Computed example of a mutant assay.
Amino acid sequence: MIGSPADASTCVLIVDDNPIYRHGLRRMLERAPGIAHVEECHSAVDVESLVRRLQPSIVLLDRRLLHVDSLHLLAKIRAASPAARIFLLSSEDDPDMRREAFAAGADGYITKDTPDDVLLALVAG
């Protein structure tokens, strides 16, 4: 379980440039037990300052953000919030991308077609 309902302390940051996916993911996470706060970011511009301010427990980072190398951004997020669990989100189930994600320090790699219950279980760890 992500957190206990009595101690809903988990903060999740979603970084994805697709507003439909981002908003849907947010709505799903807001209904999950143990999640206190869900924040969204649509570009890499404000991610570092947002991560420093929020100190999220979990970051869900789009693998293919426009105009940015998400793996480089992952390193910046890790530096700003070392305790955060960072998962790369991708529309592709590509073994090379998966290897690159883990080599860059991702805690997980989640395809965007993953069912809600499976995604929640993966994030809950």
Rank of each mutant, 00 (worst) to 15 (best):
A121M: 10
A79S: 12
L54E: 05
A32S: 12
Y21M: 13
L73C: 10
R27D: 08
R78L: 10
L60S: 05
R98D: 04
V45E: 15
D107E: 09
R63T: 09
V59T: 13
R31A: 15
F87K: 05
E92P: 01
L88N: 00
D94E: 06
G34L: 12
I58T: 02
E92M: 05
L120K: 10
T114V: 05
M97P: 00
R98S: 10
V51Q: 03
S49M: 06
T10L: 11
R99Y: 02
A103W: 02
G24I: 00
P5L: 14
L89N: 04
I2G: 05
A6W: 13
P82M: 00
E39R: 13
V38T: 15
L88G: 00
C11W: 03
P56C: 04
D117Q: 13
D93S: 12
R52G: 09
D107C: 11
V51Y: 06
L88K: 00
I77P: 00
A103R: 10
L65G: 05
A83Y: 00
H67S: 06
R27C: 02
T10C: 11
L88R: 00
G3P: 07
E30W: 00
G108P: 04
V68H: 12
P115M: 14
S90Q: 04
G105A: 07
A75R: 14
A44W: 02
E40F: 06
H23V: 07
R27S: 07
S70L: 08
A106E: 02
L25M: 15
V15S: 01
K112Q: 13
V118T: 15
R64S: 12
G105Q: 07
I2N: 08
A79E: 10
G125C: 04
D113K: 08
L120Y: 07
S90N: 07
D93Q: 10
S9Y: 11
P95D: 10
R99M: 03
D96E: 14
L71G: 14
L89H: 02
G3F: 06
